[in-house]
């Protein structure tokens, strides 16, 4: 649904060059929620703004819903009619909502329809319908200043949906909200994704957001995508940095002669209570040092750090048992960073 190839953005100011994007290949499938994470300055924001060409990429192409936007836009610095028309079918929500304080909630939602040239009656009908969809049917005549942050973002989402988009871009849409409001906004995005089949590309610095609603994710660093794939693919990748960030585990061994093992559940086999089975089968005591687990659609997903008594040599058989169950097992003090090439290829398809 959204594909970028070799997307590069270089800013030039006073003879200095700053590379914000360095050959980004991204592929977002139709109907999925795709999260791009990374620290400030990693290029996420530039990336999402390049998708609807608010920012013109220096090179590379952007294709949204089968339309090559970079070709459509031509060479000129200003948006031509073809690009503007394409943009009106790509919704965008912002971190700071960007609602017009001079207009009522309803008039804010009507703005994209005014741009599309929809008649007054039809605009009103559509705006009220969208307000109902985001659960703010009673706020049509209110001004944005009278709303809470979460309500403002709901208006922002309703406005983004006015052009009946197939794609929604979310630029840190929950970063200015408190945790509870964040959850309710994410729930709304999830519902829209499922009810309307909306494809959502979101950027965020909150791992929680990815964990909550994303089907796929990519990690950006220094203008490049260093890891990408579906959430279970990422978890299945040995040494994946994104997996460690998504499901961070910590904990020190409680004494010498202990083996610390990181076990990754990526939703394939882990429907049985493996830890207690392990304990019973080999008659060993297991301590859980740290865990970050979630149950998604009945499957356990996440990571756990456990401690087995004795050195590594004595625990070869129990570790083998865990691997047989289809779990990813890494012995914590022997770190072998594994290449993420296989995943990158997967993401580029």
């Amino acid at each position: 649904m959204i594909t970028t190839t070799g997307l590069t953005k270089v800013y030039r100011s006073r003879g200095r060059e700053v590379t914000a994007l360095d050959g980004v290949d991204l592929h977002v499938r139709e109907g999925e929620v795709y999260g791009v994470v990374g620290q400030s300055g990693a290029g996420k924001s530039t990336l999402i703004r390049c998708v609807n060409l608010l920012e013109r990429p220096s090179s590379g192409t952007v294709t949204v819903a089968g339309q090559d936007l970079t070709a459509l836009a031509g060479r000129g610095p200003r948006a031509n009619a073809a690009l503007r028309s394409a943009r009106s079918h790509i919704g965008m929500v912002f971190q700071h909502f960007n609602l017009l304080s001079s207009r009522t909630v309803q008039a804010n939602i009507e703005l994209p329809l005014e741009i599309l040239g929809v008649s007054g009656k039809e605009r009103e009908r559509k705006a009220l319908e969208l307000l109902d969809l985001v659960g703010l049917a009673d706020k049509a005549k209110a001004y944005p200043a009278q709303l809470s942050g979460g309500q403002k973002q709901r208006v922002g989402i309703a406005r983004a949906l006015a052009g009946d988009p197939k794609v929604l871009l979310s630029d840190e849409s929950t970063s200015a909200l408190d945790p509870e409001t964040t959850r309710s906004i994410l729930q709304l995005l999830r519902d829209l994704n499922q009810q309307l089949g909306l494809t959502i590309l979101l950027i965020t610095h909150e791992m929680e957001v990815v964990k909550t609603i994303c089907d796929s994710a990519a990690l950006m660093k220094g203008g490049r995508v260093v890891e990408s794939g579906t959430v279970s693919e990422i978890l299945a990748t040995p040494g994946s940095e994104l997996a460690a960030e998504l499901f961070p585990v910590g904990g020190e061994p409680s004494g010498p002669d202990r083996t610390v093992v990181d076990v990754t559940f990526h939703g394939e086999a882990a429907t049985q209570p493996v830890i207690s089975q392990l304990s019973r089968t080999y008659n060993i005591d297991i301590s859980i040092l740290g865990a970050a687990m979630d149950t998604v659609a009945g499957k356990q997903v996440g990571r756990m750090r456990i401690e087995l008594p004795g050195r590594f040599e004595e625990n070869v058989v129990p570790i083998g048992f865990l691997r047989e169950q289809g779990l990813q097992v890494d012995v914590a003090d022997i770190k072998t960073p594994a290449p993420a090439d296989a995943l990158l290829k997967e993401g580029a398809k």
Binding site: L54, R84, M92, L111
Partner: peptide, 13 residues
């Protein structure tokens, strides 16, 4: 950001 929002909806100058 408001200018940008209008542009993202397909608004021109």
């Amino acid at each position: 950001g408001l200018t940008e929002a209008a542009q993202s909806m397909g608004g021109g100058t």
